[in-house]
Simulated scan of single mutants.
Amino acid sequence: MTGLSLYDATADGTASGVIRRYSTSFGLASRLLGPAVRQHVENVYALVRVADEVVDGPATEAGLTADESRRCLDELEAETERAMAQGFSANLVVHAFARTARATGFGPELTRPFFESMRADLSASEHDQESFDRYVHGSAEVVGLMCLRAFLTGHSYPESTRALLDEGATRLGAAFQKVNFLRDLAADFEHLGRSYFPGVDVTTFDEATKLRLVADIDDDLRVSGEVIPVLPASSRRAVALAHGLFAELNRRLEATPASSLIRARVRVPDPVKVRIALQATAGRVASVPDHRPPPPGASL
């Protein structure tokens, strides 16, 4: 292996190393993907992780000011767009991501909302409903769509089915992001000065507010879970595992008193992760509570 093929392989290997270092849950789920799909998802994750690190700590620890971090993020976005257009970058993570974008058919329509949300973390300390929805779309929903483009490469679906899959991908991405916001409520506020959920104050956070947020997440998980069986076999088990892990985490958040939630970080124990992985491998999609009220006249 020489020349561009060696460079491509090196870039892919660099991207794969990022997910192994940063996320045990996504690393576990990615192992259930078909090999070609797995590499694309790892390439997406690597760029997302690097951009997130620019705004979430390491850049500040290295001595960058907020303005310098913003310039760094702008440069990363510009390099990403050039690489998607040209097919090459001297940044190995960007090169791997661009290869995936070109192979699976997405471009700036998904990366620009993502970088917009990353920039918001450098200036916005709290959100109203409109800015929250925009932030979740850019930081999570478009990432779900990037992964879906990889899942569907080489597969043909009717437009109506693809629309359902798009909805499932965006709702699953939103659920992941909201679970992380809820789990990290106190840490985001105390260490980063951020409050993501509109109208939610950590100092007055109560059980009713927590249950409302849990129910909203469950709704996203329920909708996304319904379309998992429609996915290609090469990605179905991995998505079922990621869905199951976050459904379990949301159940644990629901069971944790609000007063405790703002003091301790809830996690899924490793033995439970293994159980969920075995269920996903067997083709089972986690059940999620339906918080919608019954229709008028329904029997109780």
Rank of each mutant, 00 (worst) to 15 (best):
M118F: 13
R236E: 07
A11R: 02
P229I: 12
G87E: 07
L300R: 00
A101H: 08
E61L: 12
V285M: 09
D188L: 00
M1H: 12
D219E: 14
A98S: 14
D290H: 06
R20I: 02
F88E: 14
E248A: 10
E79W: 03
A140K: 05
V230F: 01
A124I: 12
G154W: 07
T204P: 02
S299L: 14
I19E: 10
R21W: 05
P229W: 07
G57A: 07
L76F: 03
A62F: 15
V18F: 15
M84E: 03
G63N: 13
G244C: 03
S69I: 02
D220A: 06
F176V: 05
S69D: 08
R236K: 09
S16P: 04
S287R: 03
A280F: 09
G17N: 14
Q129V: 15
A90H: 06
D201M: 07
F106T: 06
L182A: 11
A66I: 13
A242C: 11
F97G: 04
R149Y: 03
H155Q: 12
A282Y: 02
Q39H: 11
L221Q: 04
A90K: 02
D128Y: 08
T203Y: 15
S117I: 10
D121R: 00
G199R: 01
A298K: 06
P158G: 08
L122A: 06
T100M: 06
D219R: 15
R70S: 13
R38S: 05
E68L: 14
R275L: 11
A238H: 00
A286S: 14
A103M: 01
P296D: 10
P289T: 01
V227K: 08
A101C: 13
